[in-house]
Design a protein around this nucleic acid. Structure first.
Lengths: 348, 348
DNA sequence: GTTAGCACTCAAGAATTAAGAGTGCTAAAA
DNA sequence: TTTTAGCACTCTTAATTCTTGAGTGCTAAC
């Protein structure tokens, strides 16, 4: 069992290591601890902490550094989130100052604000899509057989894509097809729409069109765009500041991981559903193992019954957790408020 | 005056240094030169080349390395472009294999192909806009006062942006405003449109609308989007491979330079108009001086009377120039062909 | 003009040394 | 039983020296 003083020492080692980045020795601890004991006593306590696996040496006669397990313990039992400062609150609000025409613009902006504020790398994921409904589908002819397909959903999201009509298709046929889509599919959730698109819709279209494949492709494409989870990154380049300078190869691998949006990064953020609070993952809790000695703080936000989204921060394991946790706590509330406002603008 | 053999030596030094990355000494030159002379003779010639400022030592008793001036001379007089290999030609054609719905998709794809092929960083800039004409402007209402503004130009480019109509504006007023825009502005080039937007258009709109400012904002916004030069980058991360590993700070600065699209990079590519061939710039010919020891190969392409665009390659000064120049030569032709095809599809 | 020979230079890596921070352990003090 | 002083020991880091080898410039002979 660990004594009170030992935990105090653990906490102080973490604080000091976060600040200085160098291993912490018994002498410097003597100066910075609130209780006053000799360095020999501290050494004894440190031995106990090391025995428990919470701290470790970098070599046999060095100062101590928190271990992954030590951070875990600290985060589970010791950390005290620091409330966001007025300055930070203001910076957040200022970041959301402009006018937004899309949900995704707000979400994307979140990642930017967060990375600016922390100098780490920030991620944001829009509210999940389970409850989002199709409210309309258009094809706007632009001349030269170009058409723009537009898909609108009840969360105010709008997707569009440009197409060229295949020569075989007549425009009045297309008109009818659109009417069918709107009659049959508006009001359904996007997953339901996707399902019907494969089953019920094609037979109906066959009544009006010889080869509805081209049309289905177009619609399916835009639908997929609207249904894909939108994932934003801010402060990519900050990686270079907090990652070990020397290992450029690793740097490159992490960059690719972030940029090649192949779902791996979703594993990073973890399940969106679940606990609505702030959570830290580090060490082998992080699945893409390139991330090794990094740390991820995730925070989910929920927007009434419009679903749940997520924001996250990637940084070094030696993050000032209490500060970052407090900041993310404030941020998720602010973001939820903004998004709720945005939705009300549509519902009301 | 330099002798034939001395130029041969310069050429071989550049070739060898490009390949190995290490300074080249008289002995190894003796082995790789086509003519057979002793190392002492070569040393004499090297002294002459150094005297002329074309090569230099890294320290008083090291082998020689080409100087900026040496590269310049090489590029101006000695280099023999190597024709692109069948493999490369095929890779280019394969890269352009898919179907494209926008000019910009082709241009963007160019940067990707080129960076994949070379493992350097590639840039592409779409054909200039001087001759591009407005062919139509739409506002598509999407419900909830949301509208999508769509602007179409005669090069098949389509820009769109989402807006929320200000409460004061009635939809029939908007209809009329759109008709005016289309009547008055279609057929003009984008610069002309931009000019009229400030002079002739507002008075006309005042006849039909109380406060045309909102409408003008929307139109101006989309117009600006369409008129902004589109600039694409491929292979950003390759920077990490060919840049000095140690200096992460510089790496970061160059990344920011590339990403923050603030026109500096346009200086990098240089004037789009002018010579339609391939051109290399290096050393102090490169304006953002962070690029210091790097090298940029630019190549312009022209698409009939639809204007001129540019592709470029950023890499280390020790690039295999003959190969890269040949590759870019092939690429600009292929790209011009693709774009011409694309335009014909509209014109014809 | 070209070449062999030779003394000289310098970078880069290996080996050595010195200093200093920190530890563990023991035995005495509280 | 807990805390403390003292001390020998460990290991990193930085500075210093040593060694090796690639390469040069110069001179004198070919």
């Amino acid at each position: 069992m660990l004594t009170k003083r030992q935990l105090l020492i653990l906490k102080e080692i973490i604080r000091s290591y976060t600040e200085s980045g160098t291993p912490v020795g018994s002498k410097s601890l003597m100066a910075s601890l609130p209780v006053h004991v000799s360095s020999a006593t501290i050494r004894n306590d440190m031995a106990a902490l090391e025995e428990a696996g919470l701290i470790q040496k970098t070599h046999s006669s060095s100062g101590r550094v928190p271990s992954t397990k030590g951070y875990r313990y600290y985060l589970d039992h010791l950390v005290e989130p620091a409330a966001a400062t007025p300055f930070e609150i203001q910076a957040i609000q200022q970041g959301f100052g402009g006018h937004f025409y899309k949900i995704d613009e707000i979400v994307a902006q979140s990642a930017r604000i967060l990375s600016n504020l922390t100098n780490y790398t920030a991620f944001s994921l829009g509210p999940e899509l389970a409850n989002i409904k199709l409210t309309g589908f258009r094809l706007v002819p632009l001349g030269n057989r170009q058409v723009m397909a537009i898909l609108v959903t009840n969360n105010g999201n709008v997707e569009n894509q440009l197409f060229t009509l295949p020569p075989g298709v007549a425009s009045d046929e297309v008109e009818k097809a659109i009417r069918i889509v709107n009659d049959q599919l508006v009001g359904l959730t996007l997953p339901e729409v996707a399902k019907k698109l494969n089953t019920d819709v094609p037979p109906m279209l066959f009544k009006y069109m010889d080869s509805p494949d081209g049309f289905l492709d177009i619609f399916g494409n835009v639908l997929r765009q609207a249904a894909s989870e939108r994932f934003y990154v801010g402060g990519r380049l900050n990686l270079m500041d907090y990652l070990d300078d020397s290992d450029v190869a690793r740097l490159k691998r992490i960059f690719s991981l972030i940029d090649d949006d192949n779902g791996d990064i979703n594993r990073l953020l973890g399940p969106v559903a679940g606990t609505p609070d702030v959570k830290v993952r580090l060490g082998d809790e992080l699945t893409p193992e390139v991330l090794g000695d990094l740390s991820v703080i995730t925070a989910s936000y929920s927007v009434g019954d419009h679903g749940t989204g997520m924001i996250a921060l990637l940084g070094p394991t030696q993050m000032p957790y209490s500060k970052m946790i407090g900041l993310l706590e404030a941020f998720r509330q602010e973001l939820a408020k903004r998004l709720t406002d945005y939705y009300n603008h549509f519902d009301g």
